[in-house]
Computed example of a mutant assay.
Amino acid sequence: MQNITLLNPVDYVQRQVLKSVEEEISLAVEVYLAQQCSCIYYADLMNNIPKGFASKDSLIAWLNDKPSKNGVREGIITRYKKERPDHFENGMWKPVNFPAFIKFAYEKLTDKHFVKSRSLAEMYKLSFNDRDWLAKAAAVMGIKLLEELYEQKRLRSVIAQTILKINFLTRRLIERNASVYGRNLKNFGIKDIDNAEIRKNITEYYREIAALATQEHSQHHELALLRKYKPDIEKALALIPSHIQIAMIEGEVTS
């Protein structure tokens, strides 16, 4: 790419403005996804899935890498990073590409060669064609990608980092104490445990802590950017089903 300098002032200014706006939108989208999609249990994002549609566990399994006899079967997130390098900059994702990431996942999951099953590919095609399923699945895909970026220290947003940190710390707390709670309850002869109530209380605690953390950053410029671009973000997200429908039609034409 040609190096643009102040010797070409118009091109230089246009490029700097474009870069600045892209950075602002990327920060806003990352904060939006972190706020909307972060959860302790993925089932909270993807529940009540109708019979015949792809399950949460199936989706997560395909998003993740999986060890195999021949090494590692790369998941959708790893393949996305490799096949869409222009969606990343210095290892950091450009969240403006979130709709494109969902479309990439659709293309992989409806590819019988990728999922190694024609019937599974057809089930995912049916699932992606359902707006409710797609909305829930997109939330899971969004948080899974953000979580991986967080673990690799590749998130752009301070607020997103804070939310994800609380998310991981809460999960770790649950894991460390689960066996202790179970053992103590057993010792006291308590057998009937309301797991749903425990889960509800933990989720409410997590949301309160996350809300407090966001409140502490209430004057942060990232929240100002979120307020500025939120209408456009939600408008773009609302168009994702149509985006997928076009991909379906294109796939039928070229198949």
Rank of each mutant, 00 (worst) to 15 (best):
A34F: 02
N177E: 15
V180R: 15
G71S: 00
I166K: 02
L33G: 10
M141V: 03
E208D: 09
E252S: 08
V13M: 14
L126Y: 04
L223Q: 07
I174Y: 12
H87Q: 10
L149H: 08
I244N: 13
L146Q: 15
I159S: 12
A238V: 01
K200H: 11
I246H: 09
I60H: 05
H217V: 02
E22D: 02
K51D: 15
A211N: 09
R118I: 13
T78M: 10
K228F: 04
L6E: 00
V180N: 11
S20P: 04
F104Y: 15
I244T: 11
E24M: 03
L212S: 10
L226I: 02
S157L: 01
I240D: 13
N90W: 07
I60W: 03
M123D: 12
Y205I: 08
D194S: 02
I76W: 13
Q152P: 06
A178H: 13
L126H: 04
T203F: 11
D111G: 15
Q215L: 09
E24D: 07
L149T: 12
N184Y: 11
P50T: 01
N3G: 12
A61V: 14
N64V: 08
K235L: 14
L7K: 14
D130I: 04
A43W: 06
R156S: 09
A224C: 04
A61D: 10
N47V: 07
S255F: 01
K56G: 04
K153Y: 08
P67H: 00
L185G: 08
K136Y: 01
E122S: 14
L169F: 12
P67W: 01
L212I: 15
L134R: 11
S55L: 02
Y206I: 00
S38P: 02
R199C: 04
C37S: 15
R154Y: 05
A28R: 00
L59V: 05
G182D: 02
K228W: 00
V31K: 02
S55T: 10
N167E: 09
I246T: 11
Y32Q: 07
L223P: 09
A139Q: 12
D11C: 04
K136C: 03
E216L: 11
W93Q: 05
A247Y: 15
L225D: 05
Q152R: 14
K69G: 13
P50K: 04
I102M: 01
K191C: 07
K82I: 10
A34H: 00
A139L: 14
W62F: 15
I163Q: 07
I193A: 02
A105P: 09
L33M: 11
T5F: 13
Y32T: 06
S55V: 00
V21T: 05
K82R: 05
I4G: 06
I102Y: 01
I163N: 08
S26P: 01
Q2H: 13
K81A: 05
K200L: 11
P241F: 06
A105M: 12
P67M: 00
V72I: 13
F98W: 05
I163L: 10
E23D: 01
A178P: 05
P67Q: 03
I166S: 03
I190A: 03
A238F: 03
